[in-house]
Design a binder for these strands. Structure first.
Lengths: 214, 214
DNA sequence: GTGACCATAGTACAGGTGTACTATGGAGGA
DNA sequence: TCCTCCATAGTACACCTGTACTATGGTCAC
């Protein structure tokens, strides 16, 4: 595990549902003698199947994919000892997403808009056991660590708020009192530092706390 | 303008701030004998500069870019006669974005997750003067055509709503009465078919009517 | 110039929201 | 055990919101 470039190459799997991105990464990685692209798949399911049959050092994982998302397979990939290191590739820097990825065992986080040089550096860095989280993001994660996250109940309620339901309607739907709902709402406002339910939804979508429903 | 593949190749410019995506597209396009990649730039400004000095048939344009966005340069690219055809490349299918791109003169709209085959087909289609909007999207645009869009004033107010301001605060900031603000809000709710201001923000972010502020 | 839309301003009222409290019971960590 | 967090439930009150109206003046297209 010292100088990989003169020993065995770093074996890489790309997991991304965008053919263009897979092709771009493949082109980039193939130029490097110390890196070997073992495969590219377009879903979380295929990634698990591939990993069952191939030895891989680093998985480049897209977070936003149809069906099973990157954040969902991440724990399954890194679970057993000797598992590949996972480097997240994302289009966004939604804090919540980065935070969850870090907590779920990702070894690094890269924006797809990163320059080629940084991508190669991150792959090598992660392969050698390092962590690669971009400048500033680490700080933001630490900031967030102090603040508590939303509880499951609070998340449920926030999603219903984003759909325009009133406290009374939410209480009815969840079979709890509207007063309880109001308490949860107040906690949500505190935690997100929002001044009202509308700003809370805005912040939550922005931070990736709740998904943008289509 | 008949059979391009046996005459001059289709000249292409890629405008995208993601190096990986540019590399992937370049790899894809270079394999095709009837397509010629003239260049790849990473911002709207560079695109205009490039187009001033090079003849190009098709521009592959990313909508989401830092500084000037794709939607902003689009009119500048297609303005003069003999201008290249523009094919939008987006990561999303936000209706509002597609609609605005179509209205601003784009000849096609592609998701980055589209298969390679479809991308090549779209490029050739657009180069020959055709339109390439994916299934379903055309219908959704037509549906939307019936509905009026938000007026500039309404957009201003919606953005302030998303930041948690009350009607009174918005009125004060915009130097108008809170009653006027309330009227605008009601029009926003009608137009977006939202049940309250919170759902309006949720819908607006989802549709790309207002940006996700960072 | 007539109609359509936009931006402005107002009134009246029912009902929802946010704040500030108190309170209980369960789960889990130190 | 004690403390914290979570989920639950309630009261009281000031204020905000959404609805339903009316109304005026400007712009722009037909």
């Amino acid at each position: 595990m010292e100088n990989q470039s003169e020993q065995s190459p770093i074996r890489i799997l790309i997991v991304d549902d965008h053919p263009i991105v897979r092709a771009g990464l493949a082109t980039l990685l193939r130029r490097e003698p110390d890196l070997r692209l073992e495969g590219g798949v377009n879903s979380a399911e295929e990634a698990l199947a591939f990993l069952a049959g191939h030895a891989v050092d680093v998985v480049l994982l897209d977070l936003r994919m149809p069906k099973t998302t990157g954040i969902e397979v991440l724990p399954m990939i890194v679970a057993n000892p000797g598992a590949p290191r996972v480097l997240i590739l994302s289009s966004f820097d939604y804090e919540e997403e980065i935070y969850r990825a870090a907590m779920a065992g990702a070894r690094g986080y890269l924006m797809k808009s990163a320059p080629r040089r940084e991508i190669l550096q991150a792959v090598r860095n992660v392969a050698q056991g390092g962590l690669h989280f971009p400048e500033g993001i680490a700080n933001r994660i630490l900031e967030r660590k102090g603040r508590p996250g939303l509880s499951p109940r609070e998340q449920d309620i926030l999603i219903m708020i984003s759909k325009g339901l009133t406290n009374k309607e939410i209480g009815h739907a969840l079979l709890i009192s509207q007063f309880t709902v109001r308490n949860h709402v107040n906690h949500i406002l505190e935690k997100l530092q929002a001044s009202d339910r509308t700003e809370a939804v805005s912040i939550a979508i922005q931070q990736g706390v709740i998904a943008i429903h289509s």
